[in-house]
């Protein structure tokens, strides 16, 4: 059963097109990831789904309703990237107050325990660590006992340990039967958690599928690095159907491609009496896959 359907979404801010063409569907009970670099349009997309922004074009339905339908505020829990609380509110006060917002709230005490905030109830928001603030934010997204949880950049700024704890939490949320729409710019996070991923870049969906399928597609890609004994033109290499890209690094050549790449390139070189010295063969890894999909350098923190 489809719970979220986004088709041909577009959203501009002044002259900047934040979202150019985004379509995807989310099925009930799955963890659906929206992956992409900063500025790709991920947050704008989920803000439209959450009813915070009005799309310029395209349609969105959430649980068969338009995203601004007030009824959805009860059925959809949202954790915002920059949703803060007043500094001097305590964890208990925030949980108590937000549970009063909903007609049939979850038990906030149990939720606090589950999220490891049981001994922080008296602590003020400003005194919480980054990880604790994130967990409180997740708790507030779940406090109305929602059918869908939208979680935006959940683990950004967390240390690796806290990040792994948060991943366990998300899997726990799914186990309760909640559909999760997760925004992230970590490939590893998407691979670990998501049933399906839409990779967004420059406001468009550039790939959509299960993590395994996306990786398989990319991992088929290989790269050769070698130093030719005699000069060779790029055009000759690019003429081979297996080759997708040729890069030069001083005297060295890097050839990217698929299939029987090694054999065809060596055959071409051999036919011209060229020897490939210092030959290295590499398979693309996850980071590679991500860069290939989004055509951007990863941020330092993603390495």
């Amino acid at each position: 059963m489809t719970v979220i359907e986004v088709s041909n979404l577009q959203k501009r801010y002044g002259d900047t097109a934040a979202v150019r063409d985004v379509s995807f569907t989310v099925e009930r009970g799955e963890i659906f990831g929206i992956l992409g670099p900063n500025g790709a349009g991920k947050t704008t997309t989920v803000e439209c789904v959450a009813g915070l922004r009005t799309p310029d074009a395209g349609t969105i339905t959430v649980l068969d309703r338009p995203p601004r339908d007030h009824e959805l505020r009860r059925l959809v829990g949202v954790q915002l990237q920059e949703g803060q609380l007043p500094e001097k509110t305590t964890v208990r006060e925030a949980l108590e107050l937000f549970s009063a917002f909903y007609p049939e709230p979850a038990d906030w005490r149990a939720l606090a325990r589950e999220l490891g905030l049981g001994d922080k109830l008296g602590t003020r928001f400003a005194k919480l660590s980054g990880g604790q603030k994130q967990r409180l934010s997740i708790a507030l997204a779940l406090i109305g006992d929602p059918r869908i949880a939208i979680l935006d950049e959940l683990t950004t700024g967390l240390d690796p340990h806290a990040r792994r704890d948060t991943w366990d939490l998300i899997e726990g949320i799914r186990a309760r039967g909640v559909t999760v729409l997760l925004v992230t710019h970590f490939m590893e996070e998407a691979e670990r958690l998501c049933d399906r991923i839409a990779v967004i870049d420059s406001g468009r969906v550039v790939a959509l599928g299960t993590p395994a399928a996306l990786i398989a597609e990319i991992a088929a890609e290989q790269r050769l690095r070698f130093r030719p004994s005699e000069p060779i033109e790029d055009a000759l290499l690019l003429a081979l159907p297996e080759v997708t890209e040729v890069r030069r690094h001083g005297p060295r050549i890097e050839v990217v491609g698929k299939g029987e790449l090694l054999h065809t390139v060596i055959a071409l070189l051999a036919g011209r009496g060229i020897i490939a010295a210092d030959l290295r063969v590499e398979q693309a890894d996850l980071d590679e896959a991500y860069i290939r999909l989004t055509n951007r350098e990863p941020l330092a923190e993603e390495r």
Binding site: R73, R74, L80, G83, F101, Y102, P103, G144
Partner: peptide, 8 residues
């Protein structure tokens, strides 16, 4: 904004 995504 945080409140805007709740029923309140």
């Amino acid at each position: 904004r945080r409140v805007a995504v709740t029923p309140v």
